[in-house]
Amino acid sequence: MMYEFQLIQSTGFRNHGPQGARDGFELRLRLPNYRGMRLSLLDGIDVTVDGEFFGHEVNSLILHGETYDLEDIRKATAVSWAMGDFGSVFVPKAGGLAPGIHHLKVAARVRSPYFPPHLQPLPVNGERLATIILP
């Protein structure tokens, strides 16, 4: 699979959970930094779909097969997100999303150890159209 420049990748946008019992949706992201980073430097990911906002406090990150809520992310000082590794954001939403084209916006809240604390976290923003298809 090719590593795309855009934060929101063109594949990996799908509903989560079995058909008839969807509990949310996921979208695939590339690393929101120009080099690898410790997961604890990420302060969550805000997601907006078709104008509906889902805050970083409720979204989870799936990385290397593990799921991290915001508290887990903040404690994950030994977990690295390397260049070329994909992560997925899980957004809880009963029923998931309707099939069709959706307007996605993402703000990955990144803390940089060399920036002053009052300037952090810095959002890394992405936006694109993506499609949910029937299974």
Rank of each mutant, 00 (worst) to 15 (best):
M1C: 11
M1R: 13
F5I: 02
F5S: 09
Q6F: 07
T11L: 11
T11F: 02
G12D: 04
G17F: 03
Q19H: 04
R22N: 04
R22S: 01
D23K: 00
L27I: 03
L27C: 01
R28T: 10
R30K: 15
R30Y: 06
R30V: 06
P32L: 02
R35I: 13
R38S: 12
R38M: 10
L41E: 01
L42Y: 05
L42I: 06
D46F: 06
T48I: 13
D50A: 15
G51E: 10
E52Y: 07
F53N: 11
F53A: 12
F54Q: 09
H56L: 11
H56T: 11
N59I: 14
L61I: 15
L63V: 08
L63M: 04
H64W: 13
G65Q: 13
E66R: 15
E66D: 15
T67N: 07
E71I: 14
E71R: 15
D72F: 12
I73P: 06
R74S: 15
R74Q: 15
A78K: 12
S80T: 08
W81T: 07
A82R: 12
G84C: 12
G84V: 13
D85R: 03
F86H: 10
F86Q: 04
V89P: 06
F90K: 08
V91R: 03
P92S: 07
P92E: 03
A94C: 05
G95D: 08
G95N: 05
G96S: 07
G96T: 01
A98I: 00
P99K: 05
I101D: 10
H102V: 04
H102Y: 05
H102A: 04
H103D: 12
L104Q: 06
A107Y: 08
R109I: 04
R111K: 14
S112P: 00
P113D: 13
Y114T: 11
Y114F: 13
Y114R: 14
P116G: 07
P116V: 09
P116D: 12
P116C: 03
P117N: 10
L119R: 08
Q120R: 04
P123N: 03
P123R: 04
P123K: 04
N125M: 08
N125D: 02
G126F: 01
L129C: 02
L129A: 10
I133W: 06
P135S: 00
P135N: 04
